[in-house]
Design a protein around this nucleic acid. Structure first.
Lengths: 150, 150
DNA sequence: CTTATACTAAACCATATGGTTAAGTATCAG
DNA sequence: CTGATACTTAACCATATGGTTTAGTATAAG
C-alpha cells in the first residue's frame, strides 16, 4: 500500500528528470490535448523517441492518451504531481531552518527562466506568468469534484 | 545560462527518483550531518552502493560531504530543491484549472504515508505531521524556526 | 608497529534509458 | 482500390544506473 505510492513517486521523479519530457509536459500545459505528432513536431528527435517519452509519462500517470480515429491526443493528469509536491514540501520544512530563503523564493516569483526548454523551440521568456504560489489566496474552497481521496 | 539550470533540474529529479536516495535524504532530514556509515547502516545494500547514491546526491547538489579525520559527514543543501519546487509549482498552476484539488491537497494535510520508506525500516504511519504548506500565511517575513508547525 | 575502522576505488554485471532506422497497422482522402 | 497520414512495433545500439565483490588508502586505537 505504501509501496505503490513509493513506486509512483519513483516514476514521477524519473519522468521529470528528462528535459524532453518536461518540455512535453510544458507544451501540454500550454495546449492540452495535443496529438502525438503535434506534440513531437518541435523536437529534434524521431517520432518513436517521443513515443517512448510519452510512454514514460503515461506510465507515471502524468498524461493520458486517447485515440480518436487515427490521431491520439494527450492530456495532462496531476495526481502523481501531488505526491511529488508533497515530498518536496515535506523537505522544504526541514530545510526551512537553514534557508527560509526557500519559502520566500517560492512565495515570490523568482523565476529567472522558464521551467523547460524545448530543444529547438527557442521562443522563451513568454510563459513566465510567475505567481509561483499555488496555494495562495484560494483555500480549499472548491471541494475536489473528482477523486475525493480522503 | 538556462542550460545549466536545466541540467541541475535533470539531476535533481533524477536523484529524487530513487527510493534509497529519498530515504537517505529523509534520514539527513531527521539528523543532518550523519557519517557515511551511519547513513548506510539501515539499508540492506553494500556500502559502495550507498557511496554511489551519495555521489549522485552530491552531484545534484542536494548534499555536501566533508571529511573530518577518517569520517565523512553529510549535510543537506537546498538550492536544487528550489528549482524542483519551482518547476512543480509552475505546473500546479496549469493544472489548478482542471483540479484545484491540488491546491487544497497541499494546503491541507493529506499525507497518507511518509515520504520515503527506508527499505528495511518499516515503521510507517508515523511521520504524518501534515501541514504540507510551505508558502502559507507567512510572506518572506518570519524566518521559520524549525518545523513551523503553526 | 599492528590492527581495526571508515571510507574509496576498481572491475564487473544485469538491466534500464534514450536514441536510432526500418517495417508495420489503421484510418482518412481521393 | 491507392495512397498518404498518424501512430506503433521491432530490432538494434551506446551509455547510464544500481548493484555486487575485492582490494585498496588513511586515520584512530591498542
Amino acid at each position: 500500500m505504501v509501496k505503490y505510492q513509493d513506486e509512483t513517486l519513483d516514476r514521477t521523479f524519473a519522468a521529470l528528470s528528462d528535459p524532453t519530457r518536461r518540455a512535453l509536459l510544458a507544451r501540454l500545459g500550454e495546449a492540452d490535448g495535443l496529438s502525438v505528432s503535434e506534440l513531437a513536431a518541435p523536437f529534434p528527435v524521431s517520432l518513436p523517441a517521443i513515443m517512448k517519452h510519452l510512454d514514460v509519462l503515461a506510465d507515471a500517470g502524468l498524461i493520458v492518451r486517447e485515440k480518436t480515429g487515427r490521431t491520439v491526443s494527450c492530456r495532462l493528469t496531476a495526481q502523481p504531481m501531488e505526491q511529488a509536491m508533497n515530498w518536496l514540501n515535506r523537505y522544504a520544512q526541514f530545510w526551512a531552518d537553514n534557508l527560509d530563503r526557500l519559502a520566500a523564493f517560492v512565495e515570490e516569483e523568482t523565476w529567472p527562466t522558464q521551467p523547460s526548454t524545448p530543444p529547438n523551440d527557442q521562443r522563451n521568456a513568454q510563459a513566465s506568468r510567475s505567481r509561483a504560489g499555488f496555494a495562495h489566496g484560494r483555500k480549499k474552497s472548491t471541494p475536489p469534484g473528482r477523486k475525493p481521496s480522503s
